[in-house]
Computed example of a mutant assay.
Amino acid sequence: MEFNRNQYFMAGVLILLLGIQFRAVDTFVLNERSTQFLAQRVNAWRQPQMASAGSLPTMVAASGPIANHRMKPPKWLGWALVSVGSVLILHSLSLKKPGG
């Protein structure tokens, strides 16, 4: 499937706004549920599970509450997304209009 002008423009706007969001926010604080999900995935990636899959919820529940995770995106990520979004918007303006 080939992208047309409108799809390039919309992708550019979304990526540009995401880049502005990363520039405006210093730190993202995850809630308890997403922190537990992230901790499970990181622990599974670091060490292979030796226990059965049925005992995993009991192991997580026995470990106690986990502090909310803070994510600080690098400064270059916001600038990179802003620039890619801007290029996509400018590229969409150079394409011909769909159906015309």
Rank of each mutant, 00 (worst) to 15 (best):
G100A: 08
K97H: 05
S34H: 12
L16C: 09
Q40S: 10
L38I: 14
L95E: 07
M71V: 12
G64M: 07
R5F: 10
R41D: 08
S55E: 12
A62G: 15
L93S: 09
K72F: 00
A39E: 11
P65F: 04
Q49Y: 03
L95G: 04
L77C: 09
S92G: 03
N4D: 15
A44W: 04
M50A: 11
L81E: 11
Q21I: 05
W76H: 04
P48Q: 13
W76T: 00
N31I: 03
A62C: 03
M50L: 14
K72P: 01
K75S: 08
G19M: 09
G12I: 02
W45E: 06
K96T: 12
V13R: 10
L30T: 02
L95H: 06
Q7S: 07
A62W: 02
R33Q: 13
H69S: 07
A51Y: 14
Q7Y: 00
R23A: 11
F3N: 00
S83D: 08
E2T: 05
W45D: 05
Q36H: 09
P74N: 02
S55I: 14
R70K: 13
P73L: 06
I66D: 04
R5T: 00
L95V: 07
G100R: 07
L38P: 03
V60F: 10
M1I: 02
T58Q: 13
L18T: 12
A44F: 06
A67H: 07
A67D: 12
Y8K: 10
A67Y: 07
